[in-house]
Amino acid sequence: YETDHQDYCEVCQQGGEIILCDTCPRAYHLVCLDPELEKAPEGKWSCPHCEKE
């Protein structure tokens, strides 16, 4: 399936195990989030940028 999400972390610009925001195209490593997450959230997730909106 096709997605318009970026394939690198918004914070460190590296690829790998990233989680995708359900609201925007941004993607993040769990450890690059502040506060960092230990595991990917279940269900819908909005990144810090979208949470501020």
Rank of each mutant, 00 (worst) to 15 (best):
Y1E: 15
Y1W: 13
Y1K: 13
Y1R: 12
Y1C: 14
E2Y: 15
E2R: 15
E2V: 02
E2L: 15
T3L: 15
T3N: 03
T3I: 15
H5I: 12
Q6S: 09
Q6Y: 03
Q6F: 05
Q6L: 04
D7A: 09
D7Q: 14
D7W: 02
D7R: 06
C9A: 01
C9R: 01
E10S: 07
E10W: 14
E10N: 15
E10M: 09
V11Q: 05
V11P: 12
V11I: 08
C12G: 01
C12W: 00
C12D: 02
Q13T: 06
Q14T: 14
Q14D: 10
Q14A: 08
G15F: 09
G15P: 02
G15C: 11
G16W: 10
E17D: 06
I18Y: 13
I19W: 12
I19K: 15
L20N: 12
L20S: 14
C21D: 00
C21V: 02
D22E: 08
D22P: 13
D22C: 03
T23D: 08
T23S: 10
C24A: 01
C24T: 02
P25N: 08
P25V: 07
P25H: 01
R26A: 10
A27L: 05
A27W: 06
A27S: 07
A27P: 05
Y28Q: 01
Y28W: 08
Y28A: 08
H29C: 12
H29D: 03
H29R: 01
L30T: 05
V31Y: 03
C32I: 01
C32D: 01
L33H: 11
L33E: 03
D34N: 03
P35T: 12
P35R: 08
P35W: 03
E36K: 12
E36I: 09
E36M: 12
E36S: 06
L37N: 08
L37E: 02
L37D: 09
E38M: 11
E38A: 10
E38T: 05
K39G: 11
K39H: 11
A40R: 09
A40Y: 05
P41Y: 03
P41C: 03
P41F: 06
E42F: 03
E42I: 10
E42Y: 08
E42M: 13
E42D: 10
E42N: 07
G43V: 11
G43I: 06
G43C: 07
G43R: 07
G43M: 08
K44G: 12
K44S: 07
K44L: 10
W45F: 09
P48V: 09
P48F: 13
P48N: 10
H49Y: 09
H49W: 01
H49K: 11
C50T: 03
C50W: 01
C50A: 02
E51A: 07
E51K: 11
E53W: 02
